[in-house]
Amino acid sequence: MDKFIRHTGVGVPLRYSNVDTDQIIPAVYLKRVSRTGFEDALFSAWRHDESFVLNHPSYRSGSVLVAGPDFGTGSSREHAVWALKDYGFKAVLSARFADIFRGNSGKQGLLTGELDQDDIERIWQVLEDAPGTEVTVDLEQREVRCAEIVAPMQVDDYTRWRLMEGLDDIGLTMRHIDEIADFEASRPSHKPRTLA
């Protein structure tokens, strides 16, 4: 996984709350068995609408999505994260994220930064008044900068460390494989098994 320390890119204002994973990527695109190539599927229903924000030329190259609260609700599909990454997004900012979506993002190096809704509104205003304005997401300093705005960003310590180091979770867990084996030896024998 690539390291994430800070990123600067065009901010995209998405003034919707409750953007669920069916909107981020509809189920018809989940039939693929690959992990890449989902960029066309991102927000596919909305992208048919000419007025949708990503169809605006100034936002098309956006890499920081600034969304309403409760982003990523619904299904566990990691395809939602792959689609955002494949499109070119490096970070999503929202006042609140759904738990599974936030977890999936962390595994894939997509930063989910929590901002106060007031700060989100101020950033929306800047991005709408001057489309194409860049946003800096600084994980090291835990802050977001956009024009004159400097907003504190919440990311938990462990996720921040993993993202800044670019560490892979499975590799980290494998360091404790002996402890896993010890735990297994102590599991009650009444626990079910799927194989005879």
Partner: peptide, 16 residues
């Protein structure tokens, strides 16, 4: 609880 595909891989590999 539900998990994403990276976590599916994690559980397959480590059962944790």
């Amino acid at each position: 609880f539900g998990i994403g595909t990276s976590e599916v891989e994690h559980v397959l590999a480590t059962q944790t």
